[in-house]
């Protein structure tokens, strides 16, 4: 057998493992990775003692969460949930409305000035880098505590992304239909209204609904920085360590998000389904 190993090793050396250079680079890569891992673990203080203490603390918290209880101020909790959903709805509605003209501006079909479009896209991307919570904190300072700051934060954070998606939807439009309108003697505006809008509107609506779903999740936490909604309630209860109420709120949040997902998913399917049934 060993004789055949030698023959094969001579004939196909690569089959018996990597070359020295490959082994070296691989080792180097692993060493660098492990060094980085050790360094960050040390830096962020991942000591067994700290982890153990934290986990036992977490265990105590989880035990105290059971059974979840609405507490005495359950009206406030319900109000917070309603506020979160309302913030998400209004924020999404406003950004979806404003994003339509912006989308047309950003779309290559409509605006042909490349430089302008390029810079608009960059600005869109820049907005995307800022988390909603940062916007919320800034708006709390600007217009005061309360849900209005949350609505504005959702509006600002989403508008760029939605406008970008809308621009893409408009670019994907079939040109034949608007060309048809113009060929039939329609104006440029009529071409937009009858040629482009019917094609993109269901897509835009579906995307807005999708954003509504994700905003319901984020609206639930904007209250942590004082921008209204259920987040405020949860932060306060964590501060005073009413863990059973925290658990109740988390469960309520999960249920609310689930219900909104379900409703919006149904409507979205209907929209896309309707689009599918339209003769092309």
């Amino acid at each position: 057998m060993s004789a055949s190993i030698e023959t094969w090793r001579a004939r196909l050396p690569a089959a018996f493992g990597a070359t020295r250079a490959q082994v070296m680079t691989r080792r180097l890569g692993w060493t660098a990775f492990l060094l980085w891992l050790a360094a960050v673990l040390w830096w962020f203080d991942f000591t067994p003692v700290r982890l153990w203490n934290g986990l036992s603390g977490l265990g105590v918290i989880i035990v105290m969460m059971i059974p979840p209880s609405p507490g005495e101020l359950w009206v406030e909790i319900l109000k917070g949930i309603a506020e979160s959903v309302a913030m998400a709805f209004l924020g999404t509605f406003l950004s979806a409305t404003v994003a339509i003209p912006l989308g047309f501006l950003g779309a290559g079909n409509v605006v042909t000035a490349t430089l302008l479009r390029f810079s608009i896209r960059r600005v869109f991307d820049g907005f995307r880098g800022v988390d909603q919570l940062i916007w919320a904190l800034a708006f709390v300072r600007a217009v005061g505590l309360g849900p209005l700051a949350g609505v504005l934060a959702i509006f600002t954070a989403d508008i760029a992304v939605l406008a970008k998606l809308y621009a893409e939807a408009i670019e994907n439009v079939e040109r034949r239909q608007s060309e048809g309108v113009i060929a039939a003697g329609g104006s440029k505006l009529a071409a937009l209204r009858f040629g482009v809008l019917p094609q993109v509107l269901p897509v835009m609506l579906a995307q807005a609904l999708y954003f509504f779903e994700s905003n319901t999740r984020s609206a639930a936490i904007l209250g942590v920085v004082g921008a209204g909604g259920i987040g405020l309630q949860i932060a306060e209860r964590i501060r005073v360590r009413h863990w059973d109420e925290v658990a109740f709120i988390i469960i309520l949040m999960i249920i609310t998000v689930g219900v909104i997902d379900w409703i919006s998913g149904k409507v979205r399917r209907k929209l896309i389904g309707e689009r599918g049934r339209q003769p092309v």
Binding site: F44, R50, L55, L58, I61
Partner: peptide
Amino acid sequence: ALRTVPEIVYALIFVWAFGVGALAGI
């Protein structure tokens, strides 16, 4: 269930359990 709870809520709870600092956030 893990996915539905936002990071910031985990962070709020972990800051209590593990103390203030990057560990809780991570």
